[in-house]
Structures are given as C-alpha cells and as structure tokens.
Design a protein around this nucleic acid. Sequence first.
DNA 1: TTGTACGGGACAAAAAAGGTCTTATTGGAG
DNA 2: CTCCAATAAGACCTTTTTTGTCCCGTACAA
Lengths: 134, 134
Amino acid sequence: MLQISRKGDYAIRGMVYLASQPVDKVSLLSDIAAKMEVPQTFLAKIFQQFNKSGLVKSYRGAGGGFKLGRPAENISLLEIVETVEGPIVPNRCIMAAGICSRDISCTVHPVWKEVQKSMREILSSVTLKHLAGR
Amino acid sequence: MLQISRKGDYAIRGMVYLASQPVDKVSLLSDIAAKMEVPQTFLAKIFQQFNKSGLVKSYRGAGGGFKLGRPAENISLLEIVETVEGPIVPNRCIMAAGICSRDISCTVHPVWKEVQKSMREILSSVTLKHLAGR
DNA sequence: TTGTACGGGACAAAAAAGGTCTTATTGGAG
DNA sequence: CTCCAATAAGACCTTTTTTGTCCCGTACAA
C-alpha cells in the first residue's frame, strides 16, 4: 500500500523513546511499550531484531532493559525502517535484475528508482537526535 | 511494505499499453492482458475502476474494448497509482488529524509529510506520454 | 536460589492481496 | 430481432502478510 506497517511505526516509537531518555539509561520494555502505546510483546520482537543488528543493546535479569546501541545522532530513520521492513523498493521491478523482463515496462523503472532514491535520502537525513523531543 | 501492490503495477502496465497504441484505437482486454503479462480477469476489475474515474473509456459488444479517457500527456503516474491504491500516505499518522494523538511521535510527522510530498511530486511529473515507448 | 527481565520459537487470528466465476448488460452485425 | 462479442458488476475464494500472543528457556543480580 506504499505505507509503512505498524511494525515500522512501533519500531520508530520505541527508538524515539530510548533517544529521549538520559544517555546510557536502561529502560524497561514495559515502560517503553506503555508510554508509546505499543503492544509490549510485539515491541519485544522488534527490539530483539534491533539487538541483533546493534541498533539497541539489551540487558537481561533484574535491572535489565534496553538502551540505544549507538549515539542517537548516529542512528537514522532509514536504518530503523529498513531493519524492520527490509530494503525500500517501491516496485518489485527494481528489486533485482531479471525479475521484470518486459521491455515495455522498463520505461517506468527509472521513475521508481528516483522515488526510491528520494525516500532514502530523506529518511537517512533524519536521526534519532532530531526526533527526540528534548 | 512501502511498495506498490501488483494491482498498482498491473494498472500501470495496462495504461502504458493503451498509451503506446494509436490514438483512439480501441484495444481488447485480452490483447492488453496477454501483451503485458497480466491476469485478464484481474485487469478487467482495474479497468472497470478506471472507466468510472474517466481514466479509460470502455466500449461493449463486438468491436469493443478500451482506450485512454484523455490524451496520454494528461494522465500522470500519480493519478493511476492513487486511483487503484488510494492516496499516498507513507504513515497512518499523517492520514488525518486526530489519528495520532501522541505528542512524542509528532516529531516524525514532518518527515513523513516530506516523503509524501516528494513521492507525489515525482509521480505527478511523469505522464503516460513519457512512458509510452513509441 | 529466587525473582526479574529479555531471547526464541511456535502458534493463531485478522486483514489484505490476488484472483476466479457467474450472471447481467450492452451493442453490433447478419 | 436474434445471436454473438465484449465489458459490468458482484459474489466468492485462496493465499500471503500482518499483527499479534504464549510458553519456555536463559541470563543476571540481589
């Protein structure tokens, strides 16, 4: 639908929350979920993914939780979105060579390429630092 | 997934086909579907929608078929996409006021607005005339 | 050693995507 | 005026994706 999923939206909310906390503070998932109005178990899955990719760092046991894996100014919206949604490819055609073999449709490829480029530029220019309302 | 659906892709293919035909030629749905590698019955649905919106003009009975409802240079990619996919809104938040009431997330709204604006600008600048390989 | 909190995997309901089928309805040609 | 060609409309269906939930395991701190 040319729209990010709830998962993507929740991911951003969670990361914005972390970015708006004091640096190095470890936040409880339950707190993040409650404050950002996100289903906790769903957010848990998202943050597991982020933990693996290094976007967040997790701590288990009492006093555990999550904090950003890097300084907020080094985490872009693009990275967050692409980590949960996969690469931004506005049309299947431009995903990889050979998928779309029809000559005629190739005239639209450059358009989708341009859309892709523009989106990536915008999203990569915005970091969590910009988004944290502090 | 931040990607147009097959429906949207098929819609574009069908319209590009019509645009690459001689002006005022009425094309058979079966021909369009075959040439553009699109399921015929699915394309039928799409073109019904286009007929209502005026993007194409349909003719029934023997010798019937479809042709563009307007000159190719007056039909933009944006119009085609939005007719089948609905308005381009990269995040639910920016669809309408009040849907997203959380203060914190509002910092990302302007970003999505910008993405939306950029996409619409690109897609509206491309017409079927540009896409018809003639 | 116990309680807290994340990790991981299986599972499942709901929604959307993708497509088919059947029955009109329309219009042209014989 | 009747038959055939072609779209219109709507019901229906299947598959995939989305949007979660649940349970058990594991790590860690007090």
